[in-house]
Design a protein around this nucleic acid. Structure first.
Lengths: 124, 124
DNA sequence: GTCCATTTGTCCGTATGTATA
DNA sequence: GTATACATACGGACAAATGGA
């Protein structure tokens, strides 16, 4: 994590990943680098990586799956204390956004399966 | 944590503390036992205690302060942030969560189909 | 104000289990 | 069956904040 002071490494790392997600360098649905990769890229221990990912997970930005990896769920975090009453609206939109993205991917995968199924139907 | 199986120790511990908070054995404002105490009471490692507390912290149930301890903030996870007029909001989020869970299950079923499809394609 | 014990925060390393590819 | 990848769990070290002696 090079030299910094003031803020803990895992928070800097979380903020960095948060930025990457927000500006699209890590698009919705994309897979984050593995923990091992992140350890090397940021030159930190596995603990720091896990704490950073854990933070993003509780913010609803990513989700992790055993054996698969961590994937981007949404571009915007639910910061929580946005003082405006429209924060709730934004929160709902965020959730719906994530749902839409996931539906699109599921749609795509089902289409692929259907095509494969049709292809097999005449050949058997 | 004695003998149990099925669920990880930190989740059982979190659930136990969650219950204690919910039913008032750990009133709002009260201080939780220290990490060392919890380690002995539940007979688990410091890691498990920290994971359990971390879970409660992300739920907004407790907050921790260096040198002081961990204190109960709220009795319920969703009740603390949604005050009064946003009951509608909580309702919507609940529905959205249900949708997300159904998406997870669809994801699993599609994955299974894809695996079977790949097996037919390359296995024979 | 200083010293000291307590307590959480941060960070490091490792081992094993389990799901996925 | 092997390799990858995360989940769970263990343990320890030092720093920083707190509070009491």
């Amino acid at each position: 994590m090079a030299e910094w002071s003031g803020e803990p490494a895992y928070k800097q790392m979380a903020e960095d990943l948060r930025s990457s997600i927000a500006d699209g360098r890590l698009p919705i649905g994309s897979k984050l680098p593995s923990i091992s990769d992140l350890m090397q890229q940021y030159d930190v221990s596995i603990t720091v990586v896990r704490m950073a990912l854990s933070a993003l997970r509780s913010e609803g930005l990513i989700e992790s799956h055993q054996g698969k990896g961590a994937f981007v769920l949404s571009r915007t975090a639910s910061g929580g204390t946005t003082t405006g009453r429209s924060a709730e609206y934004a929160e709902i939109i965020k959730h719906l956004d994530a749902v839409q993205e996931r539906l699109e991917r599921l749609d795509d995968r089902i289409s692929r399966l259907e095509k494969a199924s049709r292809g097999r139907a005449g050949g058997d």
